[in-house]
């Protein structure tokens, strides 16, 4: 990367402690937009965007702030979808416990996958995560509880805390919005915590971080587990919202999609993955009539991103205003 010639870009990507006021402004705008969005857009569409936005933010925590490109994040998203579906449908757990259980499953899986994958770096790390996720995919394809090609269908949304009936899409939307913001704020806090500061140091120069006495493998493992858990939170919520957990959720194309979302929005930016998820989900929805051509359009966007605006939408915006976004 040609960093020296573009000081604004560097500042844009730097999460300095004194420049957080515009983040708060951004969050307030985002919250306001999402509160009023159901007036103009379908809640189901919005919920899809929010689930994927949370997924992309969780993924970005790893790639954007630790520099670890995982190509197997579908494993955590999909595992959580199955876990939430199974817990809600077969065990009859209320939605909050089903999602909590799903998140825990993904966290444990993340710990295991992370423990294996962080031993390697760069492309090898990506390949190991992909391989592990593919193994899991074939396991889910065969395992009886996943319903194979059919997936788990008609998952009950149930009653939140046994009180609030989630059958209504708008009611469900408020819950998803709350879940999204909880996850997003946790990620935001993580990025700006003392722990996050060490993560950024590892991203910038791992040997130097080691030479300063940081056991970088443990930091990477905690970050990986956290990212997996939050991806699980997104996947579990998605299963409850759409009442469906299927092989699509664990397929490698799902891992690819989350990469695309983070890339389109802007890797290593706070708001980028949300914008990226909105763009990708919108395209899928509005271009659904094109059938398989959607993939081609997505591919073209990917190429355009890499060629024309490598920092992603929010990354380029941050460069223009000269502030990290």
């Amino acid at each position: 990367m040609a960093v020296r010639s573009e000081p604004a870009a560097i500042r844009a990507a730097t999460g300095t402690g004194n420049g957080l006021r515009h983040h708060q402004l951004g969050m307030a705008l985002l919250a306001a937009a999402l509160v009023f969005a159901p007036l103009v857009l379908y809640p189901v569409f919005l919920m899809k965007v929010l689930c994927f936005a949370l997924f992309a933010c969780a993924f970005n925590l790893l790639v954007g702030y630790v520099g670890l490109l995982s190509f197997g994040h579908a494993a955590f998203f999909g595992t959580a979808a199955y876990a939430a579906g199974h817990a809600a449908k077969v065990w009859g757990l209320p939605p909050e416990l089903a999602v909590l259980f799903a998140t825990a499953c993904s966290a444990v899986l993340g710990l295991a996958f992370g423990w294996l994958a962080i031993r390697r770096q760069g492309i090898y790390f990506a390949m190991i995560t992909l391989a592990l996720a593919q193994m899991l995919y074939f396991f889910y394809l065969q395992a009886p509880f996943t319903g194979g090609e059919d997936g788990i269908q008609a998952i009950p949304r149930g009653r939140l805390f046994g009180l609030i009936d989630l059958a209504n899409d708008l009611v469900m939307y408020w819950v998803v919005l709350a879940v999204f913001f909880a996850g997003f704020l946790l990620i935001y806090r993580t990025i700006h915590s003392p722990f996050g500061q060490v993560l950024k140091a590892i991203r910038e120069n791992e040997p130097r971080a080691v030479s300063l006495g940081y056991d970088t493998d443990r930091y990477k493992l905690v970050a990986f587990t956290l990212s997996a858990a939050l991806s699980g939170l997104a996947g579990g919520t998605k299963a409850i919202v759409f009442r469906l957990a299927s092989l699509t959720d664990v397929h490698w194309t799902m891992s690819g999609e989350v990469v695309l979302m983070a890339l389109v929005g802007g890797l290593g930016t706070v708001f980028g993955p949300i914008v990226g998820a909105a763009v990708v989900v919108s395209l899928q929805n509005y271009l659904a009539g094109l059938g398989h051509w959607v993939t081609i359009v997505q591919g073209l966007i990917f190429v355009a991103c890499v060629l024309a605006f490598r920092r992603g939408i929010v990354g380029e915006l941050a460069r223009l205003v000269g502030k990290p976004l």
Binding site: P194, F195, A201, L212
Partner: peptide, 18 residues
């Protein structure tokens, strides 16, 4: 500061403010 904060030990307190 990354060096100075080492004295906090190996802290994984991702929930704590900057």
């Amino acid at each position: 500061r990354v060096a100075l904060q080492r004295e906090r030990g190996e802290s994984f307190d991702f929930w704590r403010s900057h």
